[in-house]
Write a protein that binds this DNA or RNA. Structure first.
Lengths: 276, 276
DNA sequence: AACTACCTGTAACTAGATGTACACCGGAAC
DNA sequence: GTTCCGGTGTACATCTAGTTACAGGTAGTT
């Protein structure tokens, strides 16, 4: 039994009338026509009548146009499902920690793909000061970001819950903030993010999906999938994303960043911080 | 102007009613529902009525469901017509990073494999107090361990460099210490670890190989491979190992840990720490 | 305790979809 | 020349889609 559209057409290719053939060419060159279009759309596009489309569907072995369309859509659904989902489908879900973590890493890379990483990092390059806010399962990510960013640029501040008021006194529209938080969003981090947004600070949100309260604050957000390790949520994705952000900022600030790193290295050497 | 479905939803995420939210979750987890499905399909799938779907579409800024569906279909058509772009996306940004991180995860799982995780975690189960020490690239791991262990047992202390003397005053042979450090071992962490070892504290070392100065202090050590992300070393392996340790301790302390977690949850609920 | 505002679902309407019956047209065979 | 037949378009019936109007219920407020 043939599956894809070209296979279906090829199977009856020798029994097609001229009009059938024009229809076939159209659906082959524009796959979405069959998936999305109505009988009328197709007929207009090909320059024929609706019943011809019907007969075409019948000739391919379907009871009607609806059946043909359903078949095509099922095929597309598989292609459209995201790679990470496919991994999840194949591997056992939570049983294997390695599969879960590698899936999460894949999700991070996907979320940072294309131009996305640059978009997320942009405010961190140009901002005067940077404020970092985090919830519970994301603290490790926030720490990694704070420590990494401090290595490549000045003005990085970690906003502690107890000293929030004092810390944010000087925040303004020249600044940027990175907010980490995931499901069971911590009230404090969301409130802080809202406050910062109201002050005109550019918000970069690392969170778990578009339904997150953080995602509605800014266009610069990304969604990570958070696997569970034992009873707790993993902070591995948050940390990985933080490190990607640091790497991107370092890349863009290249000269300034290397100078700053060198200075830090000199300081470490002078104070004998490291053994080697 | 937002383009993709998640972006559309995020833009109005804070103005969604409970039913809207269920709809959003459905269309996010099953992207083809919006592209292919009818209003009735969606309503049935979510367990709501057709008008609610309509209001959802309106809230997203469309005149009706048809407009929303057209928008989604346009987006999908682009993805379908240019598969080469998607390949480039996955290859360009992070295939190297992805391979490196997944390799590191594999190393962590291997290092914790067999009985090894139990051996490493054993002192953390029975110790009276736990001291956590870390170097530079491992701080995120140390933080993750400290925060996770605190959730499942008492007496967990993060040893800060500046307050080391005071912190360690009460350390003794009933205690355990987890030391994170990797190449270019930080003088402070190594010295602290030696001091603790001399006090009779059981040392658990998370480091990078048998040649590490930490590995010579104890039999309970494990070696992780640390990949580079941009100019810096990744703390992802350290974080992953920390989380495995927490999970193992939680498993062994099952009753005590659940009780403690419950108490913490109650406290969070009472103080309204979380949004949900 | 009453009120208000806002979700939410039921029911009705309209438009456009699919599918079918039928008529037309061209060419080939008797 | 007439007849048959596959291919095609027209017209119609039916059904389901999207949409809108309205009423019931609920939560929060005064």
């Amino acid at each position: 039994m043939p599956e894809t559209t070209p296979e279906l057409i090829a199977a009856v290719g020798d029994r097609l009338t001229p009009t059938d053939r024009r229809i076939a060419e159209a659906v082959l060159s524009e796959p979405t026509l069959l998936a999305f279009g109505t009988v009328s759309d197709l007929a207009d596009h090909v320059g024929t009548s609706r019943p011809s489309i019907m007969r075409f569907a019948n000739k391919l072995g379907f009871g009607g146009y609806s059946d043909l369309q359903s078949h095509v859509r099922r095929g597309l659904s598989q292609r459209l499902s995201r790679p990470s989902d496919r991994i999840r489908d194949h591997g056992g879900v939570g049983s294997n920690v390695q599969v879960a973590l590698e899936g999460a890493i894949g999700g991070v890379v996907e979320a940072a793909g294309g131009e996305r990483l640059g978009v997320l990092a942009e405010p961190l390059v140009s901002a005067q000061d940077i404020w970092i806010v985090s919830g519970e399962t994301s603290q490790a990510g926030a720490h990694a970001l704070a420590s990494g960013l401090t290595m490549v640029r000045p003005g990085v501040h970690f906003v502690e819950e107890h000293s929030m008021g004092r810390d944010l006194g000087s925040a303004g529209s020249e600044d940027a903030a990175v907010v980490f938080d995931f499901f069971r969003y911590r009230r404090h981090s969301v409130r802080t993010a809202r406050t910062l947004a109201r002050l005109g600070v550019s918000i970069v949100a690392i969170t778990d999906g578009p339904l997150s309260p953080l995602a509605s604050l800014t266009d610069r957000w990304c969604a990570l999938t958070v696997p569970a390790i034992g009873p707790f949520d993993s902070s591995v994705p948050a940390v990985a994303m933080a490190e990607l952000l640091v790497a991107e900022v370092a890349r863009q600030l290249h000269d300034e960043a290397t100078e700053r790193i060198d200075r830090t290295e000199d300081l470490w050497a002078a104070t004998g911080t490291y053994l080697v």
